[in-house]
Simulated scan of single mutants.
Amino acid sequence: MMKLATIVALGAGLCAPAITSPRAADGGNFNGTWSVELVTESGLCDSRYSYAVAVQEGQVRLVSSGGAARMSGRVGPDGTVGLSVSNGTASGAISGRLQARSGGGTWKVSALCSGRWTARRHSSQVAQAE
């Protein structure tokens, strides 16, 4: 089986309410670490992959990939995710939508394999000034 899900892991895209703050306008409301699980529905890839992904001000990057995967793309202010991923000669796309704590969508690696992904935001406690 091929280890190409890394390519798709961040092809991550997800849905959120309208936001008016400058930070939220650039995707900042999705900041944090997300656990992403990809499930292959067709093709030659392994059946399931799990990754950690970081979102910072709308930019997405792999935290754990277990390989030489590269990813580029953004989370939009409305939670829409659009990513391009590559690993060696294979390339793929991830799309979907994020909400406040979860999200999901689809992924495809060339003609090799495709499937669905889900994401869960890691909880973190934030200190608030009073």
Rank of each mutant, 00 (worst) to 15 (best):
R48H: 05
L98E: 05
R121C: 11
G96T: 06
C113S: 07
A119S: 09
V53A: 08
R48Y: 04
E57F: 07
V60F: 09
N87T: 04
A93P: 00
L62S: 15
A54Q: 15
D46G: 09
S50H: 13
A54H: 12
G67H: 07
W107Q: 00
L98R: 05
G67R: 09
G115T: 09
S102L: 10
G105V: 00
G76W: 11
I94Y: 07
S72L: 08
G103Y: 03
V81Y: 12
R116V: 05
G103R: 06
S72P: 00
G79W: 05
A54S: 15
A119V: 04
S91R: 15
S65Q: 13
S86F: 03
E57I: 00
R120P: 04
D46W: 09
R48W: 03
Y49F: 13
S91K: 14
S50M: 04
R116D: 01
V75H: 02
G92Q: 06
A100W: 06
S84H: 13
R74F: 15
R97K: 06
S114D: 13
G73P: 01
G96Y: 07
I94L: 15
W107H: 00
A68M: 05
R121K: 15
S114T: 12
A54P: 00
G58E: 11
Y51H: 14
V53W: 00
G58D: 09
G82V: 14
G76D: 14
V60R: 06
C113Q: 01
E57V: 01
A119E: 03
L98T: 01
T89E: 12
R101M: 06
A69E: 13
A111I: 04
G58R: 10
S102K: 05
Q99S: 02
S86C: 05
G88I: 08
G82Y: 06
G79V: 03
G79E: 08
G79R: 02
S123P: 11
A54I: 13
I94M: 08
R120D: 11
G58N: 09
G76V: 00
S50K: 15
R120V: 14
V85F: 04
V55H: 01
S65P: 10
S110Y: 08
A54D: 13
S42I: 06
I94K: 05
G76I: 02
G82K: 05
R121W: 12
G92Y: 07
A68Q: 11
A68P: 15
P77K: 14
A69Y: 09
R97V: 04
R97E: 06
G58H: 07
R116C: 00
A119C: 08
G103L: 03
G88L: 02
G43Q: 08
R70D: 01
H122K: 14
